[in-house]
């Protein structure tokens, strides 16, 4: 039985879809059978990010409403035969699906895949509730910015209230140079504020833009720092202990030097 992992954030534009595409690809490269599900109904995007937009015949709502079988709607990745996408409907809205139907769907997928990654829509309403309905684990993506961290905290509260277990955190688009100048929240700052477990630090990286332009995951590009960070996260999801890169140690030191709130709790 596979694991259902929902990737969510609260705030839009922090990199949920990029994260889902890259983690899905990395997990499949590591030998897992992976289904990625676009739960952003009405604002379909995971397909273009993965370069699969031309292959869509059926979508998630077609499956839920019985017009297509799950097998028919799943799209195979171009390179990795063990990676599949279930696209969102583009012409319906988020109320087309209920949390019960989403749970049913992810349970079906779980039977055939090792990992089911659900890309959640932004916000805290119905679409988000659908996305976490069937989740065994929730990953919250944030950037080191006040608005994103604030919304992430709301999500932490909602995930706890939904009894989904403690969520884990990805800090995305970190700019280490700004952090070392004290002009960007550090990973330690974000952890102090949100008090959840860190699963990944992804540096801000232009290769994400070029990879997304081409519809290829950055994890294929050995030059991509962000891609490497996603590979590390995938390995952590696989249960491997992967140390966090040195940039975080550097920050920790600075943090202690400036240290107002510097102490970490666990």
């Amino acid at each position: 039985m596979g694991r259902v992992i929902t990737i969510t954030s609260g705030k839009g534009g922090v990199g949920k879809t990029t994260t889902t595409a890259n983690l899905g690809t990395a997990l499949a490269m590591q030998g897992g059978r992976v289904a990625v599900v676009d739960a952003d109904i009405g604002l379909r995007n995971l397909d273009v990010v993965m370069g699969l937009e031309n292959r869509i015949v059926y979508d998630l709502v077609d499956v839920v409403e019985g017009r297509a079988r799950l097998r028919q709607a799943l799209i195979k990745d171009k390179r990795l035969p063990e990676l599949c996408l279930l696209p969102a409907a583009q012409t319906r809205d988020k109320d087309a699906v209920s949390p019960e139907q989403m749970t049913e769907l992810t349970n079906q997928l779980r039977a055939e895949f090792d990992y089911v990654l659900v890309d959640s829509p932004a916000g805290i309403e119905g679409g988000f509730r659908n996305a976490i309905a069937g989740a065994d684990q929730v990953i919250i993506v944030t950037t080191p910015e006040v608005s994103a961290v604030r919304d992430a905290d709301r999500i932490v509260g909602l995930v706890e209230a939904a009894e989904k277990g403690p969520p884990s955190l990805i800090v995305n688009r970190l700019k280490p140079r700004l952090v070392s100048r004290g002009e960007m929240l550090s990973v330690d700052d974000v952890l102090d504020l949100l008090a959840i477990t860190l699963i990944g630090i992804v540096p801000d990286d232009e290769t994400i833009v070029t990879a997304t332009n081409r519809g290829e995951a950055a994890v294929y590009d050995p030059q991509s720092q962000a891609g490497r960070a996603f590979v590390h996260i995938a390995r952590r999801l696989n249960g491997e202990e992967v140390p966090f890169p040195a940039l975080q140690d550097g920050q920790g030191m600075l943090e202690r030097l400036f240290g107002m709130f510097g102490r970490r709790r666990s």
Partner: peptide, 19 residues
């Protein structure tokens, strides 16, 4: 004061208010 520290303090207050 460094802007990161300002951000952290402001966020701390906002989160107390939100929660």
């Amino acid at each position: 004061e460094r802007s990161a520290q300002v951000a952290k303090q402001r966020l701390m207050m906002v989160l107390v208010d939100d929660r």
